[in-house]
């Protein structure tokens, strides 16, 4: 029983950590977007406002995949262990 609970907790934590690898993608993507926006502003300083608002929108959309991973990680840490433990208890009964 204790071993099984330990495996559940450990694997939930590991899974949360592995899920957050997805943070790499949005990081690179947003970095590219901001770099290009800086170039665009350098080329056309008068279009600064429009470029900035478009960049923020693009960043927000690029961030979505990272946030999916974050939500999964939060679920794995705060919600999954107790529900899995309940499943285990039911199975042992």
């Amino acid at each position: 029983m204790e071993l099984a609970l330990g495996i559940i907790l450990g694997c939930c934590a590991l899974g949360a950590g592995i899920a957050m690898i997805a943070g790499i993608g949005p990081g690179i993507g947003e970095g590219n977007a901001v770099a290009k926006a800086c170039e665009a502003i350098g080329r056309q300083p008068e279009a600064k406002g429009q470029v900035t608002s478009t960049m923020i929108m693009g960043c927000a959309i690029a961030e979505t995949t990272g946030l999916y991973a974050l939500v999964i990680a939060i679920l794995l840490i705060f919600v999954a262990p107790s529900s899995f433990a309940n499943v285990l208890k039911e199975a042992i009964k």
Binding site: A60, E63, T64, L67, Y68, L70, V71, I74
Partner: peptide, 9 residues
């Protein structure tokens, strides 16, 4: 998820 994830994190 975007709104919730940002504020919650």
């Amino acid at each position: 998820f975007r709104h919730y994830g940002n504020v919650m994190s």
